[in-house]
């Protein structure tokens, strides 16, 4: 893993070193930022492990473990709140039998919430992987998730 991390980080040439960019790049290529990699990252960027750990724990989108094959993010921003995102979320929790932040058995889905998808005119919204869905009804969820194996 060390070699792979170093190889990826070689693409990040900011001066002074940019920890956030480096971590986002790692996550893009590895799917997450393994905690074990923190010392290598610190060493490669010539910063302290505390600095790397600080950035890693600060940003909600940086993840230290691999998510399921598909990432579901339900918007709970105000427009979606007004449009019943709570029902949507409960339906998903029930049908996937997981709580927010958890990954369903078999690793197919990870369920998360987000604060606004910029799709408020089509609330309630949800993003699966990179696909944005709007005007959602709880009754449509099963059919929709069938597309994500």
């Amino acid at each position: 893993m060390q070699e792979q991390v170093k190889e990826i980080l070689a693409q990040e040439k900011s001066k002074p070193p940019n920890i956030l960019k480096a971590l986002l790049l790692l996550q893009e290529q590895l799917g997450h930022v393994p905690v074990e990699a923190v010392p290598v990252i610190a060493h490669t960027l010539d910063v302290t492990t505390a600095q790397v750990a600080g950035v890693l724990s600060y940003y909600p989108d940086l993840r230290v473990s691999a998510p399921g094959r598909h990432l579901i993010r339900v918007c709970i921003g105000e427009s979606c709140f007004a449009n019943g995102c709570g029902r949507l979320l409960r339906t998903l929790q029930d049908s996937l039998r997981i709580d927010v932040g958890e990954t369903a058995a078999g690793g197919r889905f990870t369920l998360e919430t987000m604060s606004c998808a910029g799709n408020c005119a089509l609330s309630p919204s949800m993003i699966v992987d990179r696909d944005l869905h709007g005007r959602l009804l709880p009754s449509q969820l099963d059919a929709l998730l069938d597309h994500y194996r």
Binding site: N18, I19, L20, L24, Q51, G54, Y59, P60, D61
Partner: peptide, 26 residues
């Protein structure tokens, strides 16, 4: 174009600058 990482407070201008510099958006 610099991309954020999901923190609301990074929209505050000084936190945003911290974030562009690669640090926690404080």
């Amino acid at each position: 174009v610099v991309e954020g990482a999901g923190s609301y407070v990074c929209g505050e201008e000084t936190a945003l600058l911290e974030s562009i510099e690669g640090r926690p958006g404080v």
